[in-house]
């Protein structure tokens, strides 16, 4: 395995919200201590339900927001809570593809202008002709036709727009691509096209992907490693096979049991979680999953579990036994 390109250690991002008149300000712990590494050519998938801090993680890794605590090492350079001097080199390392292809392209710019903008801003030494040449090449690489260069975003379908968004992200030849639910706004048939394009590009350009999704079947298709987030905290992290075949954390197991299987005859044990995701402003004491957990022990309500294990880690006092998970 090659050297990691990005190392995140205990990454946190808290937001302060006004409590209202005469009330103290509350703190939303959107991301509360995530550690992981990204390796060139590999994909780390981040899964979790809505509000678990997936998109916040994306924004912190992309350096749109500075972490509140913890540190991020990207290509040997450290980014801490004081934020980064977001210079060209660092910007060129990490780029992002957003979820909604209808909002992520400037409606007043042609596709060509959109693609050339990153070069214009970051590589002023590249001439106009060279810039256009590179943009046209990139257009071809993501499977769009040359005549699309002069068109405006509203003339494209969702899948084509997402291709443009991928092309724009790749213009600076980044090492890391953050994909914030890149296919969840697309049709199923288009999803697979875009996913195949992404896998193809990863192989060709040796990219490290941080793939954020709530669609487990997509993750199973694409990921090398999986990180399960719950309320801003990683509850389980490990190689894809381990996570899907032998989930140890009850939350992961519940999440997996909720994926639909295209086999009407297969009997499924669906684990139904009770209750809602607690507010990240007011987390339960002990393990943050304990109010919804069916394997809860007394210790779970008092002591916060640490991530344990090697390679395949999970934060649970009473993990699902391995032989039981094999059946699922």
């Amino acid at each position: 395995m090659s050297e990691p390109i990005l190392t995140a250690t205990n990454l946190k991002r808290h937001y302060e919200v006004k409590g209202g008149f005469m009330k103290p300000n509350a703190i939303v712990r959107a991301l509360d201590g995530a550690s992981f590494t990204l390796t060139p050519g590999k994909t780390l998938a981040v899964v979790g339900e809505s509000g678990s801090g997936k998109s916040t993680l994306a924004r912190v890794v992309t350096m749109i927001e500075a972490p509140t605590d913890g540190e991020l090492i990207i290509g040997g350079r450290k980014i801490g809570p004081e934020g980064a001097s977001r210079d060209r080199d660092l910007r060129a390392m990490v780029q992002i593809v957003f979820q909604d292809p209808y909002g992520s392209l400037n409606p007043r710019q042609t596709i060509g202008q959109t693609l050339m903008e990153p070069l214009l801003l970051n590589r002023p030494e590249i001439g106009a002709a060279e810039r256009e040449k590179r943009a046209r090449e990139m257009l071809g690489m993501v499977g769009l036709r040359p005549e699309h260069f002069e068109r405006y975003p509203h003339m494209f379908s969702g899948g084509q727009r997402q291709r443009v968004a991928v092309a724009r992200a790749l213009m600076l030849e980044p090492k890391i691509l953050v994909l914030d639910e890149p296919v969840s706004a697309l049709d199923l048939s288009i999803q697979s096209q875009v996913l195949n394009l992404l896998m193809d590009l990863q192989e060709r350009m040796d990219l490290a992907y941080l793939f954020i999704s709530h669609d487990l079947s997509v993750v199973r298709h694409l990921a090398d490693e999986v990180l399960v987030l719950y309320l801003g905290q990683p509850v389980e992290i490990g190689p894809k096979e381990q996570i899907f075949e032998h989930p140890r954390h009850p939350y992961t197991k519940a999440l997996l049991s909720a994926t639909p299987v295209a086999d009407p005859l297969m009997r499924k044990e669906r684990i139904k979680l009770k209750g809602e995701l607690p507010s990240p402003m007011n987390k339960p004491e002990g393990c943050s999953f304990n109010p919804r957990c069916w394997r809860r022990l007394d210790i779970c309500t008092t002591v916060e579990p640490e991530l344990q294990g090697h390679g395949h880690c999970y934060a649970c006092h009473n993990p699902v036994p391995e032989d039981e998970t094999a059946a699922a």
Partner: peptide
């Protein structure tokens, strides 16, 4: 998002 994208692009 396109504004954020422009910011990420520098």
């Amino acid at each position: 998002d396109y504004v954020t994208a422009a910011r990420v692009a520098g």
